[in-house]
Nucleic acid binder design. Structure first.
Lengths: 173, 173
DNA sequence: CTCCAAGGTTCATTCAATGAACTGATGGAG
DNA sequence: CTCCATCAGTTCATTGAATGAACCTTGGAG
């Protein structure tokens, strides 16, 4: 982003957050990781991001401690990118921003809805479970397709992400 | 951002939100507007943003309905940019993102802290008032300098923003 | 030995950001 | 009336990042 020069003058922690996750594509990568996407090729297919940009973003996020690169196959050597605790904490801001977009910029209904699996209730716009009143952790949150889901994307990652599944969990199917 | 082409394929309201407020500088402009900054010259001085970029961002935000351009002086003709309801709703995501940056990227203490004026209590990291348990509206929220506030920025806007004042209110001093 | 796939890197082109200079309207001081 | 300053931009040359296509590398599979 080359904002270091400018952001050093900024008197706000938002600026430091944006330095890291405010770059083009970065929050979409994090969102996909929250949904359970872990592999280079899956990010690539689902986001339609240029390869060079994806490589650079993954590296930046690993360096910053948002993602961790984990070997999941010795031979052939293959790594996947999984969210750290720091990365999982981005769920709050990401969820609120998506809800804001939903309310203000979307004509169709929500593309995805989120449920608290232990209660079965749909999570509200502030991120609270209307049934238990708590803030469901990601491990107890399930993504399901909403009424505005786009049924025309038929690449394997999009199809897998349309099946109800736990957040962070490996892609179903 | 020229992301229209790419974002049309995106199956998520987050993408639409980022199309609008995910551009470089945009969320910092919104943050300043939430703090009470309203004038072109004040944004310019406080953010250190290039003039051409500020003009473009303000125009985009006005077109999208996040800001409204309001005439506050007939002669000389002067306009200010104030947040609409849609813009004020960005407080949630902006606050959570700043808190995330605070926890994960900041060594000093918080630069600003937020209090619910009707209770006097400091708002917690989720945006709730620990005293009344509610989610204080912006009109009842006061910004105060925190322990990590940078005392070296002495331009008039930074000085004004360091004085405790209501969110959205005109700059004190 | 050849072929293929996953996960990258390289490279030319396009597009946006930057910072400095310029414009244009208005009003105040002398 | 003239000169100067201020505010709110616009213009422009330069730099830097994003894009998309092509290429490379490693390690199976047949």
């Amino acid at each position: 982003m080359a904002l270091g020069k400018n952001y050093e003058g900024q008197d706000c922690s938002l600026a430091r957050a944006l330095e890291l996750v405010g770059e083009r594509w970065t929050l979409l990568v994090v969102r996909d990781a929250l949904y359970g996407v872990r592999r280079y090729g899956d990010f690539l297919a689902h986001l339609g991001i240029p390869r060079a940009v994806l490589s650079q973003r993954l590296q930046t996020l690993v360096d910053a401690g948002v993602l961790e690169r984990v070997r999941y196959s010795q031979s052939p050597p293959r790594d996947e990118y999984v969210l750290t605790a720091m990365g999982r904490e981005l769920w709050g801001p990401v969820y609120l921003l998506a809800q804001w977009g939903e309310r203000n910029l979307s004509k169709a209904g929500p593309r995805r809805v989120f449920h608290h699996v232990t209660c079965g209730a749909r999570i509200d716009p502030h991120g609270l479970c209307p049934s238990c009143g708590g803030r469901p952790p990601l491990e107890e949150t399930e993504v399901r397709p909403g009424p505005g889901a786009d049924p025309f994307r038929d690449d394997p990652v999009s199809v897998a992400l349309r099946r109800p599944h736990r957040m962070l969990g490996p892609l179903p199917g």
